[in-house]
Design a protein around this nucleic acid. Structure first.
Lengths: 106, 106
DNA sequence: TCATTGAGATACCATTTGGTTTCATATCAA
DNA sequence: TTGATATGAAACCAAATGGTATCTCAATGA
């Protein structure tokens, strides 16, 4: 249950995928552009992009023969939602953060 | 590089381990107590606890023949640190959160 | 003392994961 | 039209992952 949370956490579990997320944070990129920045094949990058997409962390927009990969910030919400569990240990800051993000996203 | 971040994200990637974290949030528990709450063997739970320990998310305290597993909240810091990257998209709340947690932890 | 209990370690297994190579398809441009 | 380019998809592979069963060890307590 709660497959969205699982898929998001799973997507963030791999260092290459976290790097992709950071790269897409600075600019939208095609698979080709991303592949240029890694020491692996396009097929491998594609697999990572699929996992990120399953996790709701990116969206893909077709433009001609290119596919523009964009960061989907609200995909992070389930992660922050889960992390807000730790309010019990600290304070309500995580909950506030989550609300702030949700507000920005709508 | 940045193995702590990788180990923490990896530890959180599995649903059983996230459940364990939540259980330990309400009270410290031995392996036996945790195993009672899952439909798997003690050996399997032990493996999850090892991954959580590698991720810095729990500590183990020996007491007699029992091992008390405790949540280690500051192990979450690398995760929050990485997530604060998204400041660029929204605002500085995550950075503030991170600082607040670091302050609470020292 | 010695049976019981709580835990760790190891060997084993099926599935998943992260990578490759290869081939197919669609779009662009000359 | 046709060659180059951007991507997708499938088959395959080694290693990691999540689980099991089994054995050992240490502490407890009657």
């Amino acid at each position: 249950m709660e497959i969205r949370t699982q898929n998001a956490f799973r997507a963030l579990a791999d260092p290459t995928r976290r790097d992709i997320v950071q790269m897409l944070a600075s600019q939208d990129m095609t698979i080709g552009q991303l592949t240029d920045r890694f020491d692996m094949t396009r097929a491998a990058v594609k697999k990572h992009l699929t996992v990120l997409s399953d996790g709701g962390l990116i969206t893909v927009e077709a433009r001609g023969r290119e596919r523009i990969n964009k960061l989907e910030p609200k995909g992070m919400a389930p992660v922050l939602d889960w992390l807000s569990f730790f309010d019990q240990f600290w304070d309500d800051r995580l909950a506030k953060l989550k609300k702030a993000i949700e507000g920005n996203q709508k």
